[in-house]
Write a protein that binds this DNA or RNA. Structure first.
Length: 548
DNA sequence: GCCGTTTTCGGCCCGACTGTTTTCAGTCG
């Protein structure tokens, strides 16, 4: 685990302990700092070395001192002291679904319960019943929360969540009286992993929508159902919230439930400064609703340009939207091809035709087919298929840093595709690639899908790629295949290029790969497969860092 | 504990839902 995530975990634990101690605002302050550390794309040690810790959002004098203490000594005295103030098992109780700091503390003070095991015993011994506020239903809820199977699900990889959401939306459209429907939350922002799925609909018959939602075959358990919201646990324990909102509030609700939290907090304080109030029902001046039907209207009412969901992270996007200088992020219509299409050396004519037809259907100008080394006859067969406006480029896959010398009679590939997971870390100085042919680096092992990437290893790839003019891959597989959003952002800031790879092949995969690129503030001019075919071989001009 | 084109002190989002309540507390997002 990286130092960044160690510190983030430590601060989250401090926040939980402060919750138990009944502190009001400090817990959120520590959680905010934890979020900042987690989304940092460089080692916190480097930031500390430059003396810039307290420039990080949510990090002030006290927390930066604790970071320095941790870097120096490997521990934080404040944390050690807090930990001694209450039994460690209380934290486990606190993390059970439906149980919070107040309840955990009461169990400890009033029953002497110091952990989940003792809590279970107390329930079976009937010791909770006399407590004020604990009726049979609540006790039952706690009993269920203590069952091992109900452990709150870990965050779900973006790709898995997107497929599930897609299925739910399609089913609801078919079976429920729905007007508008949209997926919100961190899934819409394209976060690497999502905690739950938020779906918003407008409908004149909410009850029938909830009935249809409740009847979906993949549902495991209905957690709660009210008049505007229903929560269902699906298959592997992914929680899906469905909300029905008024058409006039759809934009405001979509904005509100898309987040991020930090983005919304800043937006609301900006609204307050301008004499307005924003909530999930609209934008209000006094009692009067002045916006909220569409999301664009919400931003326009505040004097802001529309901010794409992928960059709503409170990283300067609101100031740029106010100034009207947000960058235009890459979109599907910018892509002109795909250079990461694997093909076997023995592909049939039919398979080749199908691949080319798919590229043509997307309006692409070229298709880059990656072949194993020494497949020159296959390369010629592919090149011969370049018809109907789709050019064929041939890439050769490298699994080590030594580029093979072309055999007799074989032509050079149009580009190299380097598998980072097999070739090993990049050399510290710029190696051969240079400008011609183009290099594309794939399978960057920056982390396990859905988990946090290792900033140090990814940083070395980014440094190398920027120097060498190579493009790094962003795919729908998240961190398991290429860069995640924050690392793409770092690549953009450094002036590098990336390749958007829809490895799943369909529209959902393309959408996810694009969303990840957009999370990195990627503009079309920095996308290898948004370049005209003629520009592919040219060395990239050193780009200006993306603004943030 | 953080933060500031109304503040260096005094705020810090706020509404839905549940269970246990005759009016609210706790949790969640």
């Amino acid at each position: 685990m990286s130092t960044n995530s160690e510190l983030a975990d430590r601060f989250r634990e401090i926040a939980d302990l402060l919750d138990l101690a009944g502190e009001r605002f400090k817990p959120e302050a520590y959680r905010r700092a934890a979020r900042t550390l987690e989304s940092l794309t460089e080692d916190v040690r480097a930031v500390s070395g430059r003396g810039e810790l307290d420039a990080l959002p949510g990090v002030g004098a006290a927390i930066s001192e604790k970071i320095r203490e941790y870097l120096r000594t490997g521990s934080i005295e404040y944390y050690e002291r807090l930990r001694l103030a209450s039994p460690p098992g209380l934290l486990e109780i606190l993390r059970l679904p439906g149980l919070g700091p107040k309840t955990a503390r009461r169990f400890w003070i009033e029953l002497g319960v110091e952990g989940p095991g003792e809590l279970a015993q107390a329930i079976e011994a009937g010791r909770l019943a006399p407590l004020k506020g604990f009726g049979p239903r609540k006790i039952d809820l706690i009993r269920k929360a203590l069952a091992p199977a109900s452990a709150p699900g870990a965050r779900t990889p973006l790709r898995t969540a997107a497929r599930l959401a897609e299925g739910i939306v399609t089913a609801l459209r078919r079976t429920a009286p729905i007007d508008q429907i949209e997926v919100a939350g961190s899934l819409r922002r394209g976060r690497e992993s999502v905690g739950d799925i938020d779906i918003l609909v407008t409908s004149t018959e909410p009850e029938r929508v909830f009935d249809a939602f409740s009847a979906l075959p993949e549902r495991r358990e209905i957690s709660l159902r009210g008049s505007t919201k229903e929560t269902i646990l699906f298959g592997d324990g992914i929680q899906v919230d469905l909300r029905v909102v008024e058409p006039a509030a759809f934009g405001a609700a979509l904005q509100y439930f898309t987040g991020s939290k930090d983005h919304n907090v800043r937006l609301r304080s900006l609204a307050r400064d301008r004499g307005l109030k924003i909530n999930e029902y609209g934008v209000f001046r006094g009692e009067e609703r002045v916006g909220g039907t569409t999301e664009a209207e919400v931003y326009a009412t505040l004097g802001l340009a529309f901010i794409p969901p992928e960059i709503r992270e409170d990283q300067g996007e609101i100031a740029l939207a106010a100034a009207g200088t947000l960058p235009g992020l890459v979109a599907a219509s910018d892509l002109r091809g795909d250079l990461h299409v694997h093909a076997s050396a023995t592909a049939t004519d039919t398979e080749m035709s199908e691949q080319i037809a798919r590229a043509r259907a997307r309006g692409w100008e070229y298709l880059g087919v990656v072949l194993p080394p020494a497949s020159s006859s296959a390369a010629e067969r592919w090149r011969a298929r370049a018809t109907d406006g789709v050019a064929i480029l041939v890439g050769e896959e490298l699994r080590s840093w030594e580029a093979p010398s072309p055999g007799p009679g074989s032509t050079r590939p149009d580009y190299w595709l380097l598998r980072a997971d097999e070739a090993g870390p990049p050399p510290s100085r710029t190696a051969a690639p240079g400008s011609d042919p183009t290099w594309l680096v794939t399978h960057l092992v920056t982390g396990v899908e859905g988990a946090q990437s290792d900033p140090a290893s990814a940083a070395s790839w980014i440094d190398w790629a920027v120097q060498a003019g190579a493009a790094l891959e962003v795919s729908d597989a998240g961190a398991a295949g290429g860069l995640d959003g924050p690392l793409a952002h770092r690549l953009m800031e450094r002036g590098g290029r990336l390749h958007v790879t829809p490895s799943g092949g369909d529209d959902v995969a393309l959408g996810l790969a694009l969303r990840t690129a957009r999370r990195g503030w990627t503009t079309p001019d920095r996308v290898l497969n948004a370049s005209a075919r003629a520009a592919l071989r040219r060395p990239p001009r050193p780009g200006r860092p993306a603004r943030r």
